[in-house]
Nucleic acid binder design. Structure first.
Lengths: 261, 261
DNA sequence: AAGTGGTCTAGACCACTTT
DNA sequence: AAGTGGTCTAGACCACTTC
């Protein structure tokens, strides 16, 4: 009844709570606002990757809306892969340390058989000034400090991908070759565990090009071998870009798998 | 009250209607069954692409469930792009003759500027016996009759894609070069309008290869030019494959765009 | 037994479109 | 004004997990 008990940092404003369904033109639907508040909690680290968020009924009383409204908010976040529901257990913050997720962000499949986890060999990990093209993609200033990682991914011992990864230097202080080599599992898992940066979406531009001299060396092919050139920009909450990747993929024994629907 | 008035062909069975929520272990949730019944109506052509399906309240009374249950069924079909909701108007069967849809199935973007509609030039349209690899993908017998279409797609006058398309001969009787040339818009629009075959999903395998002599000629490049090789299998209702496409894409001025989430 | 998400209902009201 | 989908509520019961 009283305004804003403020026993938590996710209180609904009076204007929001008091407004009935669709009362004022400038207000979005209640469940969208609830969704925004939950997303804010995720972004601010109130609930960390892998942790359980409060139950639907808890959130409903906290936000002073019905359980059905919270449910619809969680439904959308869940369909956007930010949350994962588990019947009987609770709702959890999505994490990159699950086989299901890795499959979504590494879509190279062998011509025959099932996908296996690649080995990653770090070739380089250095700090440098941002080249202007990368800076633009990361919405950074040219000259800002970036981390540049270069690595080779091998499947069953066969080097298949050479990729360069640029990260904002401010977010990834203390990232070294050793840290990268110690961590087993996908790099995005390391990013969210150790650096609190959660990748939630990415755009890719895919082209066919010749390998070129350098990739040819690392991948042990001729420099005119056709390879997939995949440029990826990854985003965290709020559509903020946090990573640029440029990879060259051999596709004699593998293919990039995509589903259209 | 009485059983099965059968004034329509989408009646709920007694077993289904009589069973309360989650009554029997072998029964799936009510809304899933409703979804199945609606899908059946779509598949059997009760409502054709572009047409409006009955309102939620109509369907609710027809199936003897609450409006909310119908709503949840339609929600899922809508998120699978089989139906399109339009507030105030109704719910419509999705069609391939919409810009939004075409974008989903032709993901080539220019390096600069916005996507434009390509011109399609049919190079060949013939009936032939199914090669064994294509037959396998189409779940047909090797030796069955297929339609083979070969065409070049050009953007702003520049030939960019050479593709081969195989279709089951039985479904596409009377498909000729003239018909293909007459029809403006995406080929999938023609398929659903004239041949009653609605494509709803596709799997793609993407590789980088050399153009080869033939593609080099049609696309006016050297035969060792790297191109994207995109092999696509398209499916209609019930996961039945209805098309195999194999395209070679030039990617000097374009890229294949993909979103990971 | 208690707590969680999952399903289903019935009714109210809103926003948009067409008549 | 009438019809459509969109939102919100309150309550019931089910299925799954844990204690």
């Amino acid at each position: 009844m009283a305004a804003n008990p403020s026993e938590n940092n996710l209180n609904v404003t009076d204007g929001l709570a008091a407004s009935g369904p669709g009362s004022s033109p400038q207000f979005s639907p209640l469940y969208q606002q609830i969704k925004g508040l939950i997303m804010q909690g995720l972004e601010q680290g109130e609930w960390k990757p892998g942790e359980m968020i409060p139950s639907e009924t808890d959130l409903a009383t906290r936000f002073k809306v019905s359980q059905g409204t919270v449910r619809k908010a969680i439904d959308e976040l869940s369909s956007e892969n930010l949350l994962v529901r588990r019947q009987g257990k609770g709702t959890f913050v999505a994490t990159h340390d699950e086989a299901r997720v890795q499959f979504r962000f590494l879509r190279l499949m062998p011509n025959e058989g099932a996908q296996t986890a690649p080995e990653s060999k770090i070739v380089e990990c250095n700090r440098m000034r941002a080249p202007s093209d990368i800076a633009r993609l990361l919405e950074a200033k040219p000259g800002d400090t970036l981390v540049l990682i270069r690595r080779v991914l091998s499947f069953a011992g066969k080097p298949t991908i050479l990729e360069e990864i640029w990260l904002p230097g401010t977010l990834f202080k203390g990232l070294t070759t050793e840290r990268l080599n110690e961590y087993k599992g996908p790099m995005y898992g390391l990013f969210e565990m150790e650096f609190g940066t959660k990748m939630i979406r990415a755009d890719e531009m895919i082209r066919a090009v010749s390998a070129g001299d350098e990739a040819a060396q690392y991948l042990a092919v001729n420099s005119n071998e056709p390879v997939l050139l995949i440029e990826r920009v990854s985003f965290t909450y709020g559509e903020r870009p946090v990573e640029v990747r440029r990879g060259r993929y051999l596709t004699r024994d593998f293919y990039y798998s995509n589903q259209l629907s």
